[in-house]
Amino acid sequence: MRQDPIMQSALRLGDDALILGQRLSEWCGHAPTIEVDLSLANLGLDLIGQAMHFLGLAGDIEGQGRDADTLAFFRTDLDFTNCLLVEQPNGDFAQTMTRQWLYSTYQQLLFEAMAGVEDARFAEVADKALKEVRYHAELSADWVIRLGDGTDVSHQKMVDALGWLWRFVPELFQMDELDSLAVEAGVGVDKAALRPAYDAAINAVFEEAKLTRPDDQRTLTGGRHGHHSEHLGHLLATMQHIPRSHPDARW
């Protein structure tokens, strides 16, 4: 079946936001302090709000009667199109914040560009979400600097977190055929072109955080086409268990 690049663009954006939002929600009640607990929950809720917009849009474009909830709760891991970075486990607080910083910095550049695309359905959501995403990027960069330039222990935890997450960064900027068609259709952004600005932004934080930019490793990729790490299945099991057990439940 030939995939609709406009629908797929909305789906990829929605899946990234949904999966990262779900990951952040796992911190509820477990964060190091009550203030950080709320801070992480707020980030998660912002992302789940974005997911509702984009998945709702994907469902509308598809026109098969699937709404945001159906797309979130009744697809299997092979149907999810999120990047591998966002599904990585929370690990410790350093790993969560590093993942957030690597993603939010990308998301900010992406949405800044997407706010100018021709299709208002995409441009308007991007423009609205930008205020949230800028805060996410700033907050997570702040933590990266504090932990990187903190104690020996916090610095080492940041080095370990980067060691785990760095190989998932190139996937963010990969362009496949669907992405190129989405650019032509006036909904997508040339993600590869965002990389220099991304590198400039994260290198500045590396320097302030007294962290060394990791050497490039073998890139892991495939999330956009449903080839996920083992972690996504577990996340989906938790997220989808209730709606699948009680499909018509209301509250």
Partner: peptide, 20 residues
């Protein structure tokens, strides 16, 4: 009130706790 290591983070925490 909030706990925070410095003023900058206290403002962020206050934002997240009291202006949701």
């Amino acid at each position: 009130s909030v706990h925070a290591p410095d003023g900058e983070m206290a403002v962020n925490h206050a934002r997240d706790v009291y202006t949701r």
